[in-house]
Design a protein around this nucleic acid. Structure first.
Lengths: 156, 156
DNA sequence: ACAGAACGTCAAGCAGGTTGACGGATGCGC
DNA sequence: GCGCATCCGTCAACCTGCTTGACGTTCTGT
């Protein structure tokens, strides 16, 4: 191998391309399916609330952003009808956040579109290698971040 | 092994995590090496100008953004001394953009840091699987975008 | 020569993020 | 109990990156 013969494409660039490809594909398809007002940032909140409601204070850690950014994002999603935000009965300072019915339907649509996009990838790459790619990504991202999949953005 | 019954982690999320991990790592390290004023968006321009100068009109296609966004970004990089922008002798409307010496030194530093970060990944995953991951990404991203690696926009 | 296209910039605005500061609620030491 | 540090969420101001629309200048095809 020559020292500077053919530099490989930086992984960061490949990740940026892959991310944009999938997210753009998603947000091209959602309006066609009757979801015209979904902003890109909504997706991470949908995922975070997928399995259970959360207190607003938990979301910054899950999303990797500040509590102020989360507050504004949740406000927008409440206004759009995708999440519900009500008082925590045990702590008058805190508020609970959970998906609304509409939010849950949106989440299902998002997962369906992602599944279709990934099927295209499987068709181009092969199902086996696609799953290996996913597994390796999970493995290396967990390993370099203390054994668990980290937040999308490192918490400042 | 992860439970097969659970839905797999969306690739988009893995890409977002991986991208942030690498870019954050880069921008933590650069100030320590004497590059305190590098904004995240600069990297894509450095890469685009790596092999040859370009006309400003070519950059939107290479970066995947509008010409106005490119204009402002290049202006900031000129002010920071990383690129030079001068008149095209053959077309008084156009301007040529190229890396300055300082910009070329920065590019070398960026590639060195990325190489170190990817070595950490290779240590966690194995050199062989890391290269397979890169090759598969290039393959699938090219295949789903007409045979060539598509443009990229900075994420977040 | 001139209409139209192309190059780059200016201006206004949005989305998403940051830091700093703050009022209300909590809970722990005493 | 009480007092005070701490926590929860919001408001405010600001920054980066990107968008669309409009525009002056320059080139090009007919």
């Amino acid at each position: 191998m020559g020292p500077v013969s053919e530099p490989s494409v930086p992984l960061a660039r490949l990740f940026a391309i892959g991310y944009r490809s999938l997210v753009d594909g998603l947000h091209e398809e959602l309006p066609r399916r009757g979801w015209p007002d979904v902003r890109p940032a909504f997706g991470f909140v949908l995922l975070a609330l997928r399995d259970s409601p959360a207190s607003l204070r938990d979301l910054p850690g899950m999303l990797g952003t500040s509590k102020q950014a989360v507050s504004k994002l949740v406000e927008a999603m409440v206004a759009a009808g995708y999440v519900e935000r009500d008082a925590d009965p045990d702590d008058a300072r805190a508020k609970r956040v959970q998906l609304s019915d509409r939010g849950r339907q949106l989440l299902a649509a998002v997962e369906e579109v992602y599944a279709e996009l990934e099927r295209n990838w499987a068709a181009a790459l092969g199902e086996e290698r696609l799953q290996a790619l996913r597994a390796d990504l999970v493995s290396v991202l967990s390993a370099t971040s203390g054994g668990r999949l980290p937040a999308v953005r490192a918490v400042g």
